[in-house]
């Protein structure tokens, strides 16, 4: 009898634990059929945009761990950031609801190819190799490649990275860039930048190299880190679109150019980037081709 009671108590405790965990991961995706507003352009049913309007949802791949561009706010459980604002603008212009899914550096191009995502807004640099694989919008932001180290590090720039552990994301442009600029660095290639943050905090690597905005996001989370050295590269960000979908590229460009001209761009910049760096910026006005040249 005594033994039985313990068994029930155990089961009850396990059940309670499950209930607590279960409540923690409630439904967190926005989506569902939205009704297109009257003032949006309607697209014919056979096209990609027409299909999106019919379904009422556009699926947009963003980063979940890269403040201030795309990150999941642990309090509200919503994805926020510069890329998310842009995605919202595209969805609004189509009169549909955005559904944000997580796209890491390594899977975002496959996501476009297999149709998992309609649009990718995940701090993606426009470069020559990628232009052969997917379509790009005009650049909506230009980031700069930098090196992040701990406050007490003696690394002063990319030249000091030889023999040091350096973290960056698998499938990012830095994998190639670092091989060129710091051939003797020991690269740790991980799936997401939050892993790089963990690795530099626990001392497994001595530096992280990627776009300044992503690194700034890490400093926001841990102020014992700092940026060093000159900029390694310029990284024009573009929205990724399935290869050959000219209608979608034109449409996104239209939305972006309105966004850049009507004052929404500087507002978003201030809200997500300027607030932390104290800088002001103008929206980029270059084309995809000029963007590719910047990265060469």
């Amino acid at each position: 009898m005594q033994r039985n009671r313990w068994r029930w108590l155990c089961l009850a405790l396990m059940g309670a634990a499950l209930a607590v965990f279960g409540a923690g991961c409630g439904d967190d995706e926005e989506g569902g059929g939205g009704t297109p507003k009257a003032d949006v352009k309607k697209f014919p049913a056979g096209t990609t945009l027409g299909k999106i309007q019919q379904e009422g949802v556009i699926t947009i791949g963003v980063k979940y761990d890269v403040p201030p561009f795309g990150f999941k706010n642990p309090q509200s459980n919503k994805v926020e950031g510069f890329d998310v604002d842009l995605g919202q603008a595209v969805a609004d212009a189509l009169g549909v609801k955005p559904k944000f899914i997580e796209a890491v550096s390594d899977n975002r191009i496959p996501f476009l190819k297999d149709g998992t995502a309609d649009l990718i807004l995940s701090t993606m640099t426009i470069n020559a190799e990628r232009v052969g694989e997917i379509g790009f919008s005009d650049p909506y932001y230009i980031a700069r490649g930098r090196v992040l180290v701990k406050d007490d590090s003696d690394i002063k720039g990319v030249a000091d990275l030889a023999g040091k552990g350096v973290c960056t994301a698998l499938g990012s442009t830095y994998e190639e860039n670092l091989k060129k600029q710091a051939p003797k660095a020991e690269l740790k290639l991980v799936d997401s930048y939050s892993e790089c943050l963990e690795l530099i905090q626990n001392g497994a690597v001595e530096a992280v190299s990627t776009d300044d905005v992503i690194l700034t996001g890490m400093i926001i989370q841990d102020d014992s880190l700092k940026l060093v050295g000159e900029e390694l590269t310029q990284e024009p960000y573009g929205a990724g679109i399935k290869k050959g979908d000219k209608q979608m590229v034109d449409f996104v460009n239209e939305v972006f150019s309105a966004y850049k001209q009507d004052g929404r761009w500087p507002k978003a910049y201030d809200r997500w980037v300027g607030r932390y760096t104290g800088q002001k910026a103008q929206p980029p006005t270059i084309s995809v081709e000029e963007g590719v040249k910047l990265t060469q």
């Binding site: 550096s105 190799e129 698998l170 499938g171 994998e175 290639l189």
Partner: peptide
């Protein structure tokens, strides 16, 4: 393999 994949697509 994943590095090769990310480089060659």
């Amino acid at each position: 393999a994943r590095i090769v994949q990310s480089r060659t697509f």
